[in-house]
Simulated assay, not measured.
Amino acid sequence: MTDHEISGLQALRALIRGELPSPSIGQTMGLTAVAVEPGRITLEARPDGRHLNPAGAVHGGFAATCLDGVAALALFSTLETSTAHSTVDLNVKYVRPLTAGQTYRVEGWVVERTRSLAICDAQVLDAAGKLCAKATTTFVIRS
């Protein structure tokens, strides 16, 4: 690690404080980071008209992207910013449909991490705290 490198946790805290710009995927998905601690992060997600399928419902890919993203950020909170990681698999279970214009809480946490592999869980909750979707994601970590 160089003197100028910060940890993923430090970067995420700076993002929440508004000291770093939101990544473009966050802007596209309507995601905002609201809380982070080592191995755990909470986002807010607000699907809109950009996220609708041809039937006019929020596309399932919106929830899947939120789940994969929040799980990756939970892992990122335990890594140095220069440590590459990528999704190996994503297993999503849809419980309730999402509604455009509603705000959802998206939570991710590290279940287990080794030097080269991590398993993370994630969930999307509605304003009443009801589960809408959940996922388990496996990541490869490249040191």
Rank of each mutant, 00 (worst) to 15 (best):
L125K: 12
L73Q: 09
T81K: 11
S77V: 08
R105W: 06
S86E: 08
Q102L: 03
A122D: 10
T87S: 15
H85A: 05
V110D: 00
T78P: 02
T81M: 12
V124Q: 00
G60Q: 14
D89L: 02
S82M: 11
L79E: 05
G69V: 00
A55I: 15
K93E: 15
G69S: 13
L98N: 03
A57D: 13
W109L: 09
N91A: 07
T65Y: 07
V70D: 10
P54I: 12
T83W: 04
A100I: 07
L98M: 11
V95Q: 14
E80P: 15
Y94V: 08
V92T: 06
S116N: 15
A71T: 00
G101Q: 09
D68Y: 10
T65V: 03
G60I: 01
V92P: 02
S116R: 15
V111M: 14
V110K: 08
L73F: 09
D121V: 12
H59V: 12
E80Y: 13
D89M: 08
S86W: 14
E107T: 12
V88P: 05
A63Y: 14
A63V: 01
R105G: 00
V95H: 12
L73Y: 14
A118I: 05
L117S: 01
Q102D: 15
A57M: 14
E107L: 14
K93W: 09
N91D: 13
A118G: 13
H85Y: 15
D121F: 00
N91I: 14
G69Q: 11
R96H: 11
Q123I: 11
L125Y: 09
C120A: 08
A122F: 05
T87M: 08
A84D: 14
L90Q: 00
R115Q: 11
L67P: 07
Y104H: 09
K93S: 13
T78K: 04
N53Y: 02
V111N: 10
A74G: 00
G60T: 12
V58L: 05
R96E: 08
V70Y: 04
Q102V: 12
G61N: 04
N53A: 04
Y104M: 06
R115C: 03
H59R: 05
V95D: 06
S86H: 13
